[in-house]
């Protein structure tokens, strides 16, 4: 599971280095997000710029992350590719997440999980 975490302007940015968030990695994605965000505060911005495929299991995992972060921390999404954006649009989950069109630039490194 290639997720990289850094902080910038009091937000934690998690960059997803996987091309796919699908049924085969959805549970590991959720668990790794839980580890990476534990004990932090402020919003979490998920950089999805390198993800070109997501299925309903992957979407469910992202919703689960939003739910365990709330209410203390808000999950925001950034840089949805067209394929990923379509899943959020068709399921109307694009109305649930704050979505940034561009991923924030590099901040301060906080750790890597592979």
């Amino acid at each position: 599971m290639n997720l990289t975490s850094e902080t910038k302007d009091r937000a934690q940015i998690v960059r997803v280095g996987e091309a796919r968030i699908d049924a085969s990695i959805a549970i590991r994605f959720k668990e790794t997000m839980r580890e990476l965000t534990q004990g932090g505060d402020g919003p979490v911005i998920l950089d999805l710029s390198r993800v070109d495929f997501i299925d309903s299991s992957g979407l469910g995992a992202i919703v689960a992350v939003m739910k365990f972060l709330a209410p203390a921390r808000q999950l925001q999404l950034a840089a949805l590719t067209p394929n990923v954006g379509r899943v959020f649009h068709l399921t109307r989950m694009d109305s649930v997440f704050p979505i940034h069109s561009v991923a924030p630039s590099a901040g301060e490194r906080r750790g890597n999980v592979h």
């Binding site: 309903s56 469910g60 919703v63 739910k67 709330a70 649930v96």
Partner: peptide, 8 residues
């Protein structure tokens, strides 16, 4: 948020 579906 706590009522959001995680599948279906």
């Amino acid at each position: 948020v706590e009522d959001l579906a995680e599948g279906g």
